[in-house]
Design a protein around this nucleic acid. Structure first.
Lengths: 138, 138
DNA sequence: TACCTTTGCTTGCGATTTGCAAGTGCAAAG
DNA sequence: CTTTGCACTTGCAAATCGCAAGCAAAGGTA
């Protein structure tokens, strides 16, 4: 069991103890907005995560209850990673990261997604959470 | 000039290149929600940041245009760190961190702040951004 | 049956980053 | 002219990261 040390009782600090690194939220992005679910798919992302870091982060996310690991439906030698409700609750955070990055940094964001988020954050958050939940039932 | 390498053009990834670590958003929390503005005040936080890490993060935040550094009004040998508009735009992110941490982790949050955030995120965000802007004019 | 591929990790190791303690420089106060 | 407060800087050991290679089991192919 991967355990994390809690630096203080402040919710901002404690959230960062779990999510505060360069990779964790990218994995959740891949699950929610790109529809990925397997180790191999995570490795193919543009940012090129190292295999040991990926294995470590998946273990932490599972230990902290943000994702579940299950044998894939199509192949018994594959695993499927899905978000729990605790994991799905990070979607608003990722939405804020999209909006901040798109506004203040040189990035390339899908214009239709951006418009959707700017029109109504809450609606978009609920939509992507619902889509991820539906995928988990396949 | 502290420069960061951009791993991809994705806004989530690029935001994390700047904000994705355990300390950066804690400093912004201290400025916005605790009203801190000097090196010495940042050092006193519960999480106990090391002095070299603090100096490094302040330099990165200034280089990336999230904070400004100015001689303090009361004492010429002191510096005052304030948020720019780019920095203030991370407030929604911190609000989401508060809400996620308070909901899913064993934390101690100010109940009145929590109620305020849950009642209306947007209103609260605007309020704390306004308060931070007003402080910058002192 | 024997071989090859896919998939999901694990291991080794050099490089970078972190955390702790101590020290430095400089302006203002006494 | 010494002391104090503030903002760093430096040294160093420990931890983490990133790259490349290796490994084991499931499943497909011949």
């Amino acid at each position: 069991m991967k355990e994390l040390k809690q630096r203080s009782t402040c919710p901002v600090s404690t959230s960062l103890d779990v999510l505060g690194d360069k990779w964790t939220l990218l994995l959740i992005r891949d699950i929610v907005f790109v529809g990925k679910s397997t180790y191999g798919q995570f490795l193919q992302s543009e940012e090129k995560i190292a295999t040991n870091i990926l294995a470590d982060r998946l273990a932490v996310l599972e230990a902290q209850g943000l994702i579940t690991k299950a044998v894939a439906a199509d192949k018994k030698s594959k695993f499927t990673y899905r978000l729990t409700e605790k994991g799905l609750d990070t979607v608003p955070l990722i939405v804020e990261l999209v909006l901040w990055g798109a506004k203040h940094c040189p990035t390339i964001a899908d214009p239709s997604l951006l418009a959707e988020l700017q029109a109504s954050k809450d609606t978009a958050v609920e939509k992507y959470q619902r889509l991820a939940r539906e995928k988990a039932l396949e």
